[in-house]
Design a protein around this nucleic acid. Structure first.
Lengths: 149, 149
DNA sequence: AAATTCAGGACTATTTTAGTACTATTTTAT
DNA sequence: ATAAAATAGTACTAAAATAGTCCTGAATTT
């Protein structure tokens, strides 16, 4: 499975909760209790999202976290790279040093093409798309069964 | 990083070696010595690829492994799912049981859309594409820098 | 000044992945 | 027939990555 880490999965849950509720500020402990994710884990995720400029934080009592911009302006690609670093399938797409096959490897640029395609796909989906009501018929254009051939 | 396992990476190296050499049959030990991957690991990968009908094997002396069909007919998606199982970003896209947020989670069908997009991207690239000479200018249509924003 | 809340970093435990070893089975060649 | 060559299958071990926790410090509000 081409897997996303659990933390990234949590991040999407947290962010969609924040995007759904119009509230400006959410304390970490509030998010933890609503989502059922342990507080230290929630804090860790929120911190990473602040560093990636997806969230803004305010300290002190009445403080908390809020979206840095409109959900329409937050792409899934941004969220994933905030949690996991650059989006790339192979190690050599990020750094090609230490690859003993560097010279004989004619695959690299082709991997880059694939990475780019995937990145574009993830860039085109925003947080606003994620919180749209599930299963809206016009959203599903292709039979999902084809995924598991 | 949206990572592929090392074994999958190895698999693409092994398969492109096999696709480049017109030879019909390659012994596991020959592949190991050429690619520099340890023999037991090579065997493991080759077996998985046979199970996924990407390769065919013949036993006995003069035996070995060969491509089950033309490189044009072997997609990257097939290779990845042979090594890692179904291509999906989130656990709940594969099995949704045991997800305590099952009812309140409106994200699932949107993840499926993303998964589908990525799957299509990977399905459209074949082994034949992977062994094309690297860096052919017409292949690179978008600046790679945009990948690492 | 006290209470609340985020910031940052270090640490531990768990899970996943990679790699190894061994035995059985099949086919070819002598 | 028999030996050699090669894959098939299974179980096990070790290493690495990930997830999760904890603690101390800093900022803001009341």
């Amino acid at each position: 499975m081409l897997r996303l880490s659990k933390l990234t999965d949590y991040a999407t849950v947290i962010l969609s909760h924040m995007a759904k509720n119009g509230k400006q500020v959410h304390a970490a402990i509030e998010i933890a209790s609503i989502t059922g994710i342990a507080l230290p884990t929630v804090s860790k995720i929120l911190k990473l999202l602040v560093n990636a400029n997806v969230l803004v934080s305010t300290r002190g009592s009445k403080g908390g976290y809020g979206l840095a911009r409109l959900p329409e302006k937050i792409s899934v690609a941004t969220v994933i790279s905030a949690l996991e670093g650059p989006i790339a399938l192979t190690e050599c797409s990020i750094s090609h040093q230490g690859c003993e096959q560097a010279s004989g490897c004619g695959i690299r640029s082709n991997w880059n093409l694939i990475n780019l395609t995937i990145h574009n796909a993830l860039e085109s989906v925003t947080l606003a798309d994620m919180i749209r009501p599930t299963g809206a018929p016009e959203e599903i254009r292709v039979p999902v069964a084809s995924l598991f051939r």
